[in-house]
Simulated assay, not measured.
Amino acid sequence: MTHKDQDIHVLDFPGATALRNAGRTESPDPKVLERTRALVLQAIAADTDHAVPTASAAAVVVTSRFGRRRLLACAAAVAAVATGFAVLPVVGVGSEPAATVSAADLFNSLADRAASGGRGQAPYWKTTVRTWVEGDRTHTDTYYLSRDALVIKTQNGRTVTKKAPPGGTSWRVGTRQVSWGNLDKLPTRPDALRRILSAGAKGASAAEQTVRQSGELLTGSPASPRLRAALYRVLADTPGAEVTPGVKDGAGRTGARISWKWSDNVAHSPHDPNWIVRPSDGQILETMSTRAGDASHITERTTYLYAGPADKVR
């Protein structure tokens, strides 16, 4: 076989041809599913330089970029056949073929991390945000959101206080506004939560609305760990996501980039949403928009340097 004849398909490991031609299989043993999931999560962790604990005690000892890429390809391929997850293409390393990763498995992993996190109760939800919009300069501000006001500490040293509208601070969820005190009353069963988030929209518009509102709750609200986990599980079953591991955010931190592309079907949305998430703890590091049809053209970027509870304005 010459280099011209080599198979450059994404599944480039021995036996890949047979795997591709295998088609559907019977449901595997639960132990196989668990091992498959562990391999995928370990591969994601290796590629993002973060350790992601799993139910399996097996350790990944491969340290080279080639080894990590191949592990990722093998693990995701096995997951595709064994579990029926949608395996989506991601960017390769250098001139090597692209690997693959399951968007559903990544979101479920983020849900596990979010569920185990402790948020606690505090009077403020604090975010320190680095913002850039095409045509403008980057600036970093800190926001202290409470039940009845928003206090902004600007980069130039100013403090701005904005009172909440009548009814207090609230978030758009589906077709209604949900107040700070009622966030904990939202359902945490993914199917029930999805119905509320997508209310009033259909098709691609329902998927986009679900993603955008979930992102606002995950980054800008004091949602409980149970609600945060439920939001990620809703996203695991929302179509349109593509995953690219090993991407840097605006602050130089490494995570997995999740992209959605519905703009061809959603007339009012000229931009596609993108997130960079950290698989090790389920945090959204950054949200950004790209021009529809041109994923390399970033039009705005919001980098979350901190997002969490705060006892007081400092």
Rank of each mutant, 00 (worst) to 15 (best):
D105N: 07
A104D: 04
A75I: 01
S116N: 02
A76M: 03
D105R: 06
R113T: 09
A76W: 05
A115R: 15
A82L: 07
A98E: 12
F107R: 02
A80S: 15
S116T: 05
A86P: 03
C74M: 07
F107T: 06
L72P: 07
A80R: 14
A111H: 01
S102C: 06
A99C: 11
A80N: 08
S95A: 13
T83G: 13
F85W: 08
G94M: 02
A76H: 11
D105V: 04
P89R: 04
D105L: 14
G117E: 12
F107Q: 03
T83M: 11
V90N: 05
T100R: 12
P89D: 09
A73C: 06
A79I: 02
S95R: 11
V90F: 05
A103M: 00
G94E: 02
A114R: 11
V91P: 05
G94C: 09
V81I: 10
A99W: 07
A104S: 15
S109V: 00
A76P: 06
V101M: 13
S109A: 14
A104N: 13
V81H: 02
A111K: 14
G120L: 07
R113Q: 14
P97W: 13
G92I: 07
A104Y: 00
L110R: 05
V78C: 12
A76E: 04
A99R: 10
A98I: 11
A79N: 14
G120D: 12
R119F: 11
V91H: 01
G117A: 15
G94K: 02
L110Q: 12
S109T: 04
A111S: 15
A114D: 01
G118A: 01
A73R: 15
R119P: 02
S95D: 15
S95H: 14
G94I: 11
L110H: 08
E96F: 02
T83L: 02
A111R: 06
A98L: 06
A80M: 04
P89C: 09
V101E: 01
A77W: 03
G117F: 03
G84Q: 14
S95F: 13
G117W: 03
A86F: 06
A86H: 14
P97I: 09
A77Y: 06
R113C: 06
A75W: 07
V91Q: 04
G92N: 07
F85D: 05
C74D: 09
A82Q: 04
V93C: 01
A104P: 08
A114N: 11
A99T: 09
L110K: 12
A79W: 10
G84I: 06
A77R: 01
L106F: 04
S102I: 04
S102R: 03
G120A: 10
S116C: 00
L72E: 08
A115V: 09
L88K: 08
G117H: 09
V91C: 03
E96G: 00
D112Q: 08
G117P: 01
N108F: 05
A114S: 12
V87M: 08
G94R: 10
A86W: 03
L72N: 12
V101I: 01
P97E: 12
A86D: 11
S95I: 13
A115P: 05
D112P: 02
S102L: 00
T100H: 08
V87K: 01
G94D: 01
G94Q: 03
A73E: 08
T100V: 10
A82E: 15
S102H: 00
G94N: 02
V87E: 09
G117L: 01
A79M: 03
A99G: 13
A99E: 13
G118Y: 07
G120T: 03
